[in-house]
Design a protein around this nucleic acid. Structure first.
Length: 389
DNA sequence: CATTGGTCACCCTAGATTTA
DNA sequence: TAAATCTAGGGTGACCAATG
Protein backbone atom coordinates (compact mmCIF):
# COMPACT_ATOMS: atom_id res chain seq x y z
CA UNK A 1 0.00 0.00 0.00
CA UNK A 2 2.60 2.50 1.04
CA UNK A 3 6.14 2.61 -0.24
CA UNK A 4 9.39 3.95 1.16
CA UNK A 5 12.06 5.22 -1.24
CA UNK A 6 15.14 7.39 -1.14
CA UNK A 7 14.77 10.65 -2.94
CA UNK A 8 17.55 13.05 -3.96
CA UNK A 9 17.23 16.49 -5.50
CA UNK A 10 19.07 19.78 -5.86
CA UNK A 11 17.70 23.02 -4.51
CA UNK A 12 19.52 26.33 -5.18
CA UNK A 13 22.61 24.38 -6.03
CA UNK A 14 22.51 22.42 -2.78
CA UNK A 15 22.17 18.66 -3.03
CA UNK A 16 19.49 17.23 -0.71
CA UNK A 17 18.16 13.76 0.04
CA UNK A 18 15.40 12.26 2.14
CA UNK A 19 13.34 9.11 2.64
CA UNK A 20 9.89 9.53 1.15
CA UNK A 21 6.78 7.58 2.14
CA UNK A 22 4.28 7.53 -0.73
CA UNK A 23 0.76 6.17 -0.39
CA UNK A 24 -2.88 6.64 -1.37
CA UNK A 25 -5.25 7.70 1.40
CA UNK A 26 -8.76 6.30 1.97
CA UNK A 27 -10.13 8.41 -0.85
CA UNK A 28 -7.41 7.40 -3.25
CA UNK A 29 -5.69 10.78 -3.05
CA UNK A 30 -1.94 10.46 -3.54
CA UNK A 31 0.07 11.59 -0.48
CA UNK A 32 3.70 11.68 0.54
CA UNK A 33 5.72 12.58 3.59
CA UNK A 34 9.52 12.84 3.89
CA UNK A 35 11.91 11.82 6.66
CA UNK A 36 15.63 12.24 7.27
CA UNK A 37 16.03 8.67 8.43
CA UNK A 38 14.82 5.45 6.88
CA UNK A 39 13.82 4.17 10.31
CA UNK A 40 11.37 7.03 10.85
CA UNK A 41 10.01 6.61 7.34
CA UNK A 42 9.41 2.89 7.90
CA UNK A 43 7.65 3.61 11.19
CA UNK A 44 5.40 6.13 9.47
CA UNK A 45 4.67 3.66 6.68
CA UNK A 46 3.49 1.07 9.22
CA UNK A 47 1.37 3.67 11.05
CA UNK A 48 -0.29 4.89 7.85
CA UNK A 49 -1.07 1.38 6.67
CA UNK A 50 -2.63 0.49 9.99
CA UNK A 51 -4.65 3.73 10.10
CA UNK A 52 -5.92 3.34 6.56
CA UNK A 53 -7.05 -0.18 7.36
CA UNK A 54 -8.86 1.09 10.50
CA UNK A 55 -10.28 4.02 8.58
CA UNK A 56 -8.81 6.47 11.09
CA UNK A 57 -6.08 8.02 8.96
CA UNK A 58 -6.01 11.80 8.58
CA UNK A 59 -3.28 13.24 6.37
CA UNK A 60 -1.21 16.04 7.91
CA UNK A 61 -2.11 18.39 5.14
CA UNK A 62 -5.82 18.02 5.83
CA UNK A 63 -7.52 21.16 7.01
CA UNK A 64 -10.89 19.71 7.94
CA UNK A 65 -10.03 17.81 11.11
CA UNK A 66 -11.55 19.00 14.35
CA UNK A 67 -8.20 20.21 15.71
CA UNK A 68 -7.25 22.15 12.56
CA UNK A 69 -10.66 23.81 12.30
CA UNK A 70 -10.81 24.50 16.04
CA UNK A 71 -7.43 26.21 15.97
CA UNK A 72 -8.54 28.24 12.98
CA UNK A 73 -11.61 29.15 15.05
CA UNK A 74 -9.35 30.28 17.91
CA UNK A 75 -7.40 32.55 15.53
CA UNK A 76 -10.70 33.93 14.27
CA UNK A 77 -11.81 34.51 17.87
CA UNK A 78 -8.57 36.31 18.65
CA UNK A 79 -9.27 38.65 15.76
CA UNK A 80 -12.72 39.34 17.16
CA UNK A 81 -11.11 40.18 20.50
CA UNK A 82 -8.53 42.50 18.87
CA UNK A 83 -11.38 44.22 17.00
CA UNK A 84 -13.15 44.77 20.32
CA UNK A 85 -16.12 42.64 19.29
CA UNK A 86 -15.68 40.28 22.25
CA UNK A 87 -13.83 40.59 25.55
CA UNK A 88 -10.45 39.14 26.37
CA UNK A 89 -11.99 36.75 28.86
CA UNK A 90 -14.19 35.17 26.23
CA UNK A 91 -11.26 34.71 23.85
CA UNK A 92 -9.09 33.08 26.51
CA UNK A 93 -11.94 30.87 27.62
CA UNK A 94 -12.50 29.53 24.08
CA UNK A 95 -8.77 29.14 23.51
CA UNK A 96 -8.54 27.02 26.65
CA UNK A 97 -11.58 24.98 25.67
CA UNK A 98 -10.00 24.08 22.34
CA UNK A 99 -6.50 23.27 23.62
CA UNK A 100 -7.50 21.55 26.87
CA UNK A 101 -10.63 19.66 25.85
CA UNK A 102 -11.50 19.67 22.17
CA UNK A 103 -8.10 18.83 20.67
CA UNK A 104 -7.23 15.95 23.05
CA UNK A 105 -10.66 14.33 22.89
CA UNK A 106 -11.97 14.98 19.38
CA UNK A 107 -8.94 16.43 17.57
CA UNK A 108 -8.20 13.70 15.04
CA UNK A 109 -11.76 13.28 13.81
CA UNK A 110 -12.69 15.00 10.57
CA UNK A 111 -15.35 17.59 11.09
CA UNK A 112 -17.48 16.16 8.30
CA UNK A 113 -17.39 12.75 10.02
CA UNK A 114 -18.30 14.13 13.45
CA UNK A 115 -21.36 12.38 14.90
CA UNK A 116 -23.64 13.38 17.75
CA UNK A 117 -22.37 10.26 19.53
CA UNK A 118 -18.79 11.64 19.35
CA UNK A 119 -20.01 14.83 21.01
CA UNK A 120 -21.84 12.84 23.66
CA UNK A 121 -18.57 10.98 24.24
CA UNK A 122 -16.88 14.37 24.62
CA UNK A 123 -19.44 15.29 27.29
CA UNK A 124 -18.96 11.96 29.09
CA UNK A 125 -15.17 12.38 29.03
CA UNK A 126 -15.49 15.78 30.67
CA UNK A 127 -17.80 14.43 33.35
CA UNK A 128 -15.39 11.52 33.92
CA UNK A 129 -12.64 14.13 34.30
CA UNK A 130 -14.59 15.48 37.26
CA UNK A 131 -16.53 18.38 35.75
CA UNK A 132 -20.00 19.01 37.10
CA UNK A 133 -22.61 17.90 34.55
CA UNK A 134 -23.87 21.44 34.11
CA UNK A 135 -20.35 22.74 33.47
CA UNK A 136 -19.62 19.89 31.05
CA UNK A 137 -22.78 20.76 29.18
CA UNK A 138 -21.74 24.40 28.92
CA UNK A 139 -18.44 23.18 27.39
CA UNK A 140 -20.48 21.40 24.74
CA UNK A 141 -22.36 24.66 24.26
CA UNK A 142 -19.03 26.42 23.70
CA UNK A 143 -18.05 23.71 21.23
CA UNK A 144 -21.26 24.48 19.33
CA UNK A 145 -19.65 27.82 18.46
CA UNK A 146 -16.78 25.93 16.83
CA UNK A 147 -19.33 23.85 14.94
CA UNK A 148 -21.10 26.98 13.70
CA UNK A 149 -17.78 28.34 12.51
CA UNK A 150 -16.96 25.04 10.78
CA UNK A 151 -20.32 25.05 9.02
CA UNK A 152 -19.78 28.58 7.75
CA UNK A 153 -16.44 27.42 6.34
CA UNK A 154 -18.16 24.52 4.60
CA UNK A 155 -16.50 21.77 6.63
CA UNK A 156 -19.80 20.10 7.48
CA UNK A 157 -23.49 20.34 6.74
CA UNK A 158 -24.96 18.41 9.67
CA UNK A 159 -25.33 19.65 13.25
CA UNK A 160 -23.88 16.90 15.46
CA UNK A 161 -23.22 19.27 18.39
CA UNK A 162 -26.74 20.69 18.30
CA UNK A 163 -28.11 17.14 18.12
CA UNK A 164 -26.02 16.13 21.12
CA UNK A 165 -27.19 19.20 23.05
CA UNK A 166 -30.78 18.15 22.49
CA UNK A 167 -29.90 14.95 24.33
CA UNK A 168 -28.36 16.91 27.19
CA UNK A 169 -31.41 18.98 28.01
CA UNK A 170 -32.70 19.22 31.55
CA UNK A 171 -29.44 19.21 33.49
CA UNK A 172 -30.22 21.32 36.55
CA UNK A 173 -28.21 24.45 37.24
CA UNK A 174 -26.52 24.19 40.64
CA UNK A 175 -27.57 26.91 43.06
CA UNK A 176 -25.16 28.66 45.35
CA UNK A 177 -25.96 28.52 49.05
CA UNK A 178 -26.67 31.71 50.93
CA UNK A 179 -26.50 32.74 54.58
CA UNK A 180 -29.16 32.90 57.22
CA UNK A 181 -29.26 36.21 59.12
CA UNK A 182 -27.61 34.48 62.11
CA UNK A 183 -24.75 33.25 59.99
CA UNK A 184 -24.31 36.63 58.34
CA UNK A 185 -24.21 38.29 61.77
CA UNK A 186 -21.48 35.90 62.93
CA UNK A 187 -19.50 36.53 59.79
CA UNK A 188 -19.77 40.30 60.13
CA UNK A 189 -18.60 40.01 63.74
CA UNK A 190 -15.43 38.07 62.92
CA UNK A 191 -14.75 40.32 59.92
CA UNK A 192 -14.82 43.32 62.23
CA UNK A 193 -12.28 41.83 64.64
CA UNK A 194 -8.55 41.63 64.00
CA UNK A 195 -7.39 38.22 62.86
CA UNK A 196 -4.21 36.98 64.63
CA UNK A 197 -1.11 37.26 62.43
CA UNK A 198 -3.05 39.15 59.77
CA UNK A 199 -2.08 42.59 58.58
CA UNK A 200 -4.18 45.41 59.97
CA UNK A 201 -4.65 46.97 56.56
CA UNK A 202 -5.79 43.75 54.92
CA UNK A 203 -8.23 43.05 57.78
CA UNK A 204 -9.73 46.51 57.43
CA UNK A 205 -10.12 45.92 53.72
CA UNK A 206 -11.76 42.52 54.10
CA UNK A 207 -14.12 43.98 56.68
CA UNK A 208 -15.18 46.62 54.17
CA UNK A 209 -15.55 44.01 51.42
CA UNK A 210 -17.81 41.88 53.61
CA UNK A 211 -19.91 44.87 54.67
CA UNK A 212 -20.25 46.28 51.16
CA UNK A 213 -21.32 42.87 49.85
CA UNK A 214 -23.65 41.99 52.73
CA UNK A 215 -25.46 45.34 53.03
CA UNK A 216 -25.08 46.93 49.61
CA UNK A 217 -25.13 43.70 47.61
CA UNK A 218 -22.06 44.70 45.62
CA UNK A 219 -20.08 42.27 43.49
CA UNK A 220 -16.39 41.73 44.07
CA UNK A 221 -15.44 43.41 40.80
CA UNK A 222 -17.64 46.40 41.64
CA UNK A 223 -16.05 46.78 45.06
CA UNK A 224 -12.55 46.63 43.56
CA UNK A 225 -13.67 49.17 40.95
CA UNK A 226 -14.72 51.80 43.52
CA UNK A 227 -12.93 55.13 43.11
CA UNK A 228 -12.74 58.11 45.41
CA UNK A 229 -15.46 59.70 43.28
CA UNK A 230 -17.78 56.75 43.94
CA UNK A 231 -18.22 57.63 47.59
CA UNK A 232 -20.58 60.46 48.51
CA UNK A 233 -20.67 60.79 52.30
CA UNK A 234 -22.85 63.91 52.03
CA UNK A 235 -25.68 62.15 50.24
CA UNK A 236 -24.74 58.86 51.97
CA UNK A 237 -24.59 56.91 48.72
CA UNK A 238 -22.17 54.78 46.74
CA UNK A 239 -22.14 55.43 43.02
CA UNK A 240 -21.53 52.15 41.23
CA UNK A 241 -20.08 53.05 37.85
CA UNK A 242 -17.28 50.60 37.12
CA UNK A 243 -16.11 47.08 37.38
CA UNK A 244 -12.49 46.01 37.76
CA UNK A 245 -11.80 42.98 35.58
CA UNK A 246 -9.39 40.20 36.46
CA UNK A 247 -6.97 41.84 33.99
CA UNK A 248 -7.00 45.02 36.09
CA UNK A 249 -9.00 46.91 33.49
CA UNK A 250 -11.59 49.38 34.72
CA UNK A 251 -14.70 48.79 32.64
CA UNK A 252 -17.99 50.59 32.48
CA UNK A 253 -21.14 48.60 33.25
CA UNK A 254 -22.56 46.34 30.55
CA UNK A 255 -25.85 48.21 30.48
CA UNK A 256 -27.32 51.39 31.89
CA UNK A 257 -28.96 49.44 34.69
CA UNK A 258 -25.53 48.55 36.07
CA UNK A 259 -25.16 52.24 36.90
CA UNK A 260 -26.78 52.81 40.23
CA UNK A 261 -26.61 54.65 43.53
CA UNK A 262 -26.75 52.51 46.65
CA UNK A 263 -27.60 53.99 50.04
CA UNK A 264 -24.76 53.53 52.51
CA UNK A 265 -25.40 52.52 56.13
CA UNK A 266 -23.67 54.91 58.53
CA UNK A 267 -21.26 52.28 59.87
CA UNK A 268 -19.92 51.77 56.34
CA UNK A 269 -19.39 55.52 56.00
CA UNK A 270 -17.31 55.36 59.18
CA UNK A 271 -15.33 52.33 58.00
CA UNK A 272 -14.58 54.02 54.69
CA UNK A 273 -13.55 57.16 56.52
CA UNK A 274 -11.00 55.22 58.56
CA UNK A 275 -9.81 53.43 55.44
CA UNK A 276 -9.22 56.65 53.50
CA UNK A 277 -7.43 58.24 56.44
CA UNK A 278 -5.19 55.34 57.45
CA UNK A 279 -4.77 53.03 54.47
CA UNK A 280 -5.60 54.66 51.15
CA UNK A 281 -2.64 55.03 48.77
CA UNK A 282 -2.67 57.52 45.91
CA UNK A 283 -3.72 55.81 42.71
CA UNK A 284 -3.65 57.05 39.10
CA UNK A 285 -7.23 55.86 38.60
CA UNK A 286 -8.27 56.88 42.15
CA UNK A 287 -9.09 53.25 42.93
CA UNK A 288 -9.79 52.91 46.63
CA UNK A 289 -8.75 49.31 47.21
CA UNK A 290 -5.21 48.50 46.06
CA UNK A 291 -2.20 46.79 47.59
CA UNK A 292 0.21 49.08 49.44
CA UNK A 293 2.29 49.15 46.25
CA UNK A 294 -0.73 50.13 44.19
CA UNK A 295 -1.30 46.84 42.35
CA UNK A 296 -4.55 44.91 42.04
CA UNK A 297 -5.70 43.00 45.11
CA UNK A 298 -5.06 39.36 44.33
CA UNK A 299 -8.25 37.35 43.95
CA UNK A 300 -6.54 34.32 45.45
CA UNK A 301 -5.71 36.26 48.59
CA UNK A 302 -9.25 37.56 48.95
CA UNK A 303 -10.35 33.95 48.71
CA UNK A 304 -7.76 32.85 51.24
CA UNK A 305 -8.84 35.50 53.70
CA UNK A 306 -12.50 34.74 53.04
CA UNK A 307 -11.95 31.09 53.95
CA UNK A 308 -10.25 32.11 57.20
CA UNK A 309 -13.26 34.28 58.07
CA UNK A 310 -15.63 31.39 57.38
CA UNK A 311 -13.54 29.15 59.61
CA UNK A 312 -13.58 31.67 62.43
CA UNK A 313 -17.32 32.13 62.08
CA UNK A 314 -17.75 28.35 62.20
CA UNK A 315 -19.23 28.30 58.71
CA UNK A 316 -16.74 26.01 57.00
CA UNK A 317 -18.25 22.72 58.13
CA UNK A 318 -19.63 21.85 54.71
CA UNK A 319 -17.63 20.39 51.86
CA UNK A 320 -19.34 22.96 49.64
CA UNK A 321 -18.06 26.22 51.12
CA UNK A 322 -19.90 29.52 50.91
CA UNK A 323 -18.80 31.78 48.07
CA UNK A 324 -18.07 35.43 48.63
CA UNK A 325 -20.90 36.04 46.20
CA UNK A 326 -23.26 34.42 48.71
CA UNK A 327 -23.14 37.77 50.56
CA UNK A 328 -24.79 39.44 47.56
CA UNK A 329 -27.50 36.80 47.67
CA UNK A 330 -27.85 37.45 51.38
CA UNK A 331 -28.16 41.19 50.77
CA UNK A 332 -30.99 40.58 48.31
CA UNK A 333 -32.92 38.27 50.59
CA UNK A 334 -32.31 40.49 53.61
CA UNK A 335 -33.67 43.50 51.73
CA UNK A 336 -36.74 41.52 50.70
CA UNK A 337 -37.18 40.07 54.18
CA UNK A 338 -37.13 43.62 55.55
CA UNK A 339 -39.93 44.69 53.30
CA UNK A 340 -38.19 46.26 50.31
CA UNK A 341 -40.20 45.53 47.14
CA UNK A 342 -38.53 43.19 44.67
CA UNK A 343 -38.53 45.97 42.05
CA UNK A 344 -36.44 48.17 44.38
CA UNK A 345 -34.12 45.30 45.21
CA UNK A 346 -33.57 44.72 41.49
CA UNK A 347 -32.61 48.37 41.15
CA UNK A 348 -30.13 48.22 44.02
CA UNK A 349 -28.52 45.06 42.68
CA UNK A 350 -28.23 46.54 39.21
CA UNK A 351 -30.53 44.09 37.47
CA UNK A 352 -32.26 45.61 34.48
CA UNK A 353 -35.38 43.51 34.92
CA UNK A 354 -36.70 42.36 38.26
CA UNK A 355 -37.42 38.87 36.96
CA UNK A 356 -33.64 38.39 36.85
CA UNK A 357 -33.69 39.09 40.57
CA UNK A 358 -36.45 36.56 41.03
CA UNK A 359 -34.71 33.97 38.86
CA UNK A 360 -31.41 34.16 40.68
CA UNK A 361 -32.69 34.80 44.19
CA UNK A 362 -35.98 32.92 44.09
CA UNK A 363 -34.73 30.46 46.68
CA UNK A 364 -34.84 33.13 49.36
CA UNK A 365 -37.87 35.01 48.11
CA UNK A 366 -40.16 32.03 47.86
CA UNK A 367 -39.32 30.16 51.06
CA UNK A 368 -42.02 27.53 51.61
CA UNK A 369 -42.43 28.47 55.29
CA UNK A 370 -42.98 32.11 54.37
CA UNK A 371 -45.59 31.12 51.82
CA UNK A 372 -47.50 29.14 54.44
CA UNK A 373 -47.30 31.95 56.98
CA UNK A 374 -48.55 34.42 54.42
CA UNK A 375 -51.36 32.11 53.40
CA UNK A 376 -52.42 31.74 57.03
CA UNK A 377 -52.35 35.50 57.56
CA UNK A 378 -54.40 36.02 54.42
CA UNK A 379 -56.99 33.57 55.57
CA UNK A 380 -57.08 35.01 59.10
CA UNK A 381 -57.54 38.53 57.81
CA UNK A 382 -60.40 37.54 55.54
CA UNK A 383 -62.41 34.78 57.21
CA UNK A 384 -64.63 33.02 54.77
CA UNK A 385 -68.14 31.79 55.60
CA UNK A 386 -66.92 28.24 54.99
CA UNK A 387 -64.55 28.50 57.96
CA UNK A 388 -67.29 29.73 60.26
CA UNK A 389 -69.54 26.85 59.33
C1' DC B 1 14.94 40.20 70.34
C1' DA B 2 15.20 36.34 67.42
C1' DT B 3 12.32 32.96 65.80
C1' DT B 4 8.41 31.31 63.43
C1' DG B 5 4.17 30.38 61.25
C1' DG B 6 0.47 32.53 59.21
C1' DT B 7 -0.33 35.97 55.81
C1' DC B 8 0.05 38.45 51.59
C1' DA B 9 2.00 39.65 46.86
C1' DC B 10 2.53 37.81 42.57
C1' DC B 11 2.45 34.16 39.41
C1' DC B 12 -0.43 30.62 37.15
C1' DT B 13 -4.55 27.29 35.32
C1' DA B 14 -9.15 25.78 35.07
C1' DG B 15 -13.90 24.99 36.72
C1' DA B 16 -18.34 27.35 38.28
C1' DT B 17 -21.65 30.96 38.27
C1' DT B 18 -23.95 35.01 36.77
C1' DT B 19 -26.59 37.64 33.60
C1' DA B 20 -28.22 40.39 29.38
C1' DT C 1 -27.38 31.19 24.33
C1' DA C 2 -23.34 33.89 24.54
C1' DA C 3 -20.19 36.19 27.08
C1' DA C 4 -18.54 37.69 30.90
C1' DT C 5 -16.88 37.42 35.87
C1' DC C 6 -16.09 34.84 39.99
C1' DT C 7 -14.29 30.91 42.51
C1' DA C 8 -10.99 27.41 43.50
C1' DG C 9 -6.73 26.06 43.72
C1' DG C 10 -1.37 25.48 43.29
C1' DG C 11 3.27 27.46 43.96
C1' DT C 12 7.01 30.68 45.72
C1' DG C 13 9.13 34.01 48.41
C1' DA C 14 8.82 38.04 51.30
C1' DC C 15 7.13 39.89 55.39
C1' DC C 16 5.04 40.80 59.69
C1' DA C 17 2.54 39.89 64.18
C1' DA C 18 2.79 37.03 67.91
C1' DT C 19 5.51 34.17 70.91
C1' DG C 20 8.91 32.59 74.08
Amino acid sequence: MASVSKRAWTHNGVKKEAWAVRYHDEKGVRRSKQFDQKKAADAFKRKVEREIEDGTHTPDGDSDTVDAVSREFVRHTEMRWRDGRIGRGRYEHLNRLVEANVVPILGRIRFRDLKASDVEGFYRDLVAKGLAPFTARSRVLDFAEVEKFARRRGHLKTQPVRDALAELRGIPRPRIRTFTSDEAARLLRVAGAHRPHAKVRFCAMMNLFVNLAAFCGMRQGEILGLTTASIDPERRIIRVRHNLTCYDELKGPKTASGVRDIPMPSHIIDLLDVWMRDHYVEDPRSLIFRTPKGTRIDAGNIHYSWRRLLEQAGLDHDDRPFHFHALRHFAASWMIANGLPVTDVAGLLGHCKFDTTLQVYAHSVLRPALRHETMERMVAALPSPALAA
